[in-house]
Design a protein around this nucleic acid. Structure first.
Lengths: 181, 181
DNA sequence: CAATTAATGTCAATAAACTTGATATACTAT
DNA sequence: ATAGTATATCAAGTTTATTGACATTAATTG
């Protein structure tokens, strides 16, 4: 099963790219070489989105709720303004979902001690729990993948994804986590 | 520049995963290991989406137009029903954008010879041109990435993406292209 | 301290997108 | 002939996204 998936991958790669099979130099990157990344990322992302869509519907939350929880859980202490640019959400669209999360007891807003205009977001234990619930099926998918491809491939995978990011996203990810107050 | 990006990637990986650095067995995959994939894919996909958003706005088309063009250009001869399930678009939502593309001369609908109920989608030369225009900036991004990471990493990258896909998407991608009639 | 700027939050109008359900036509299969 | 399939349209209702104006609080500047 596992082996046949990897064999299928080879078949796909062969028809999609001359470049990775060493039949061309870097200058010969074709439109097909480039499109393979577009196509695979599109479908892989759709799949992982659907994983969480089921859980989100179950608890009556939406994508913006999910993204906000992500930041509150994994990057605690970020200000609303930081999040607006990071999550590409507009000022007007963030407040309803954010209010929901606060009301439901998943997220706390604390006034920053260094700049009392800013509100820092922190997930509550209940919020952490909810986040883990939402990504359940996504994690199941990834666990299967990790077992299939092994740590070395995974490392290359992450490296390439890292390179695809915008510089400002790389900066954001490398920023030290704010200490929990 | 290129080297520093890869160094940053190593830094990110170190804080995100015990597993890939060989400090744990497959049974020890942590929530952080799994979340790294979620996070990187989310941001990478957002970035590539924004690349095409600019071009789409310029020509007054939307995401569904883009997806339909993708199939018409890269998988010519697919029926409307195939596309509905593949692109996760509903019957009611496909027809307006599809009609637009036909009116604009980017896509042709041909009645299938084997089943005259089915309409097969084919991109016109003008449609192919438009598609290439839309993905311009995305391709620029990827070209830079390919140059940075090299063909071997890219191959591993594609392999992992392939494993993330749903089985029915893998099947779809391996299906022989319908011959152009 | 007064004036300005920044960060957050609210209100409202319009537009765009998605959902649901009903319905019609052309064609295939039995 | 009948039943089922693939495509297409119409419409109502809901949700989201977009735009612009504006209020509040706090930091900053002069």
């Amino acid at each position: 099963m596992t082996a046949s998936i990897l064999k299928d991958a080879e078949r796909y790669l062969k028809t999609s790219s001359k470049w990775v099979s060493g039949e061309g130099t870097a200058e010969d990157i074709t439109s097909d070489d480039l499109f393979a990344t577009t196509e695979l990322m599109f479908l892989a992302y759709l799949g992982t989105l659907e994983d969480t869509a089921l859980q989100l519907k179950e608890v009556g939350l939406g994508r913006i709720h999910h993204r906000l929880l992500y930041v509150a859980v994994k990057k605690p202490g970020k200000s609303v303004g930081d999040i607006l640019t990071f999550l590409r959400v507009t000022n007007q669209n963030i407040h309803r979902p954010l209010g929901d999360l606060v009301k439901l007891g998943y997220v706390e807003q604390r006034t920053s001690v260094t700049d009392r205009r800013k509100r820092e977001l922190h997930a509550t234990p209940k919020g952490v729990e909810m986040f883990e619930f939402l990504v359940q099926r996504q994690y199941d998918r990834f666990r299967g993948v990790y077992d299939t491809v092994g740590p070395e491939s995974l490392k290359e995978f992450w490296k390439v994804l890292w390179c695809i990011l915008d510089q400002h996203d790389r900066d954001w990810l490398l920023k030290e986590q704010q200490p929990e107050s």
